[in-house]
Design a protein around this nucleic acid. Sequence first.
DNA 1: GGGCGCTATACATACGTATTCACCTGCTCT
DNA 2: AGAGCAGGTGAATACGTATGTATAGCGCCC
Lengths: 339, 339
Amino acid sequence: MTTRRPTSFDIAALAGVSQPTVSRALSGNASVSEETRQRVLDAARQLHYTVDKNASGLRTRQSRTIALLFFEDPTPDDTLINPFYLSMLGAITRACAVNRYDLLISFQQLSGDWHVDYEDSRKADGILLLGYGDYLTARPRLEQLVKQETHFVRWGASRDGQVGTTVGSDNEQGGYLAARHLIERGRKAIAFLGAIGAGAPEFVERWNGFERALAEAGIGRDERLRIDAGPTEESGRAAAELLLGQGVPFDAMFATSDLTAIGAMRALHDAGKHVPGDVAIVGFDDIAAARLAEPPLTTVAQDPRRAGEALVETLIARIEERDAGSVSLPVKLIVRGSS
Amino acid sequence: MTTRRPTSFDIAALAGVSQPTVSRALSGNASVSEETRQRVLDAARQLHYTVDKNASGLRTRQSRTIALLFFEDPTPDDTLINPFYLSMLGAITRACAVNRYDLLISFQQLSGDWHVDYEDSRKADGILLLGYGDYLTARPRLEQLVKQETHFVRWGASRDGQVGTTVGSDNEQGGYLAARHLIERGRKAIAFLGAIGAGAPEFVERWNGFERALAEAGIGRDERLRIDAGPTEESGRAAAELLLGQGVPFDAMFATSDLTAIGAMRALHDAGKHVPGDVAIVGFDDIAAARLAEPPLTTVAQDPRRAGEALVETLIARIEERDAGSVSLPVKLIVRGSS
DNA sequence: GGGCGCTATACATACGTATTCACCTGCTCT
DNA sequence: AGAGCAGGTGAATACGTATGTATAGCGCCC
């Protein structure tokens, strides 16, 4: 026998009150006498009652759910996803739990058609956008989200001139710290490994900070030491090989992602170069693998936990129509053996 | 002006039909003349109409959503999550998308109180359970899920004598393949690094296969070569150090997780041991890092994509009340430089 | 030519909750 | 003592959809 799930009417009957009273007693933000409330709570417990989220959502027009769109463009398939994002995912789920929101997750191609009707269809109250990719091509879609009055917050660069609210690390400062550290270590010919296209604003900002430090130190830069590289080990390895192959001497490199740095270190190692003797390296992110690398990687740390919390809290503020501007999170240089 | 979102009545008015006809035209599984259907579809497109999932779910009593409970007991906080599970997460999201299900995700402590009222509250039609942990202590909770007639599928061992339907790799065969491979390489003193407690059935099965291979080859085993180790680098490193410290000679090790193997390799390296010269190593999972390790790690590959698909498809079968038994997925030995 | 079966549509209703409104009780204030 | 007020409760209703039932039109056959 498939027992029908209890409704608030069943609770009402058992507690000897009316259905509205049950609703009020459970939601807590209305006046119900303490005695009645207890009777209702007891009845609810007894029948294993839980609120039907569909009915509740239909009535209140909200789902207390956040949708996370995770873009995985550069690594379309079963590739390794950046551990930094994974940590952030964990932080986001925890922040959601703390705020009593559920999290709907969906992996998408930034370049493809987005499946973002979550808020349209009332499955979610707001949307988080996360992941690498060329947000310039995505601009029309972001603008459409704004037009639809969809609540969304994007992980990205703080000053990327894009549409909507953003939470991101202080990438410019990160790039600056990395370069200044290498300069202080006496390096002059510092290569930059990162995405260069204008579509990846985080990396552009890291580049800007990097360049500022060089300019401050009066070091001219050689365009040939600026190599295009994505946030993967394979990409880092390829970039380093390219760098080695072109014969332009260099004694340091700043990679805009730890995975890039680790891949580059591997290529250097294979080429017989010593780290940090021949080439000092600084990465970005401070993923767990950075500490475990050989030698341990100096890197600019982002705090994934703070990042996740900030994303969720900013989005919730927007959902609740409270003011919430973009957030820029501090970064920290962690010096280890690679520099 | 906040424009009210359109309802099926608006579409009906625009298309000159009744609301039920709109519903039927959109759902597709009822008789509507082709001409009418086109008019309805046009009207829906014109008004940017999407079905309200709350109302729809209230009526149909289903959400077309799957909840994923991810347990992270051994690594409670911001630790590195096993990349194998991450790949699986990706596969699960894709499988959900293919089947037009949404995915609700939640990280939980296996040992804590589960927050599993998703199905109770009609936010999800079924639940996937994933992650390491001691499922013995979780048994009462699993039994309660069964009692509540909750649809759930668990990632785990195929023959662990636990409650409910399971999808898992053929762990016994994996352990067997690993051990036989090491034996064929001429190794005799093979250490086993893995979780030993009865609560981690996957690892117990790997042990069983391991032992079977040793028995077949007539190799007696030394209990001191069986070391407790969890699926993390730190744990692998600690286990290897323990092994080295106790002075019992060994010339190979089978680690029941690649992360364990990589941590152990690091400890061996620090102790001046050569891999595979002094000690041959086989891992389990075939995460990306295995291929990139130094030397590249021989390992027993699980297929995370197949695993994710199988989990989702099995769960959907159960949701739709179709028969679906537990699934055991094949594993494959990948020989690389570490053995 | 009347009844039958089939298709296409409309009417009416139910899903379970949250909220508005009205009411009642008991109390304070003048 | 009467008016006013606040807290506590119930009756009625609306949210937007899917579906059971009824009806109209139409061709077909005996």
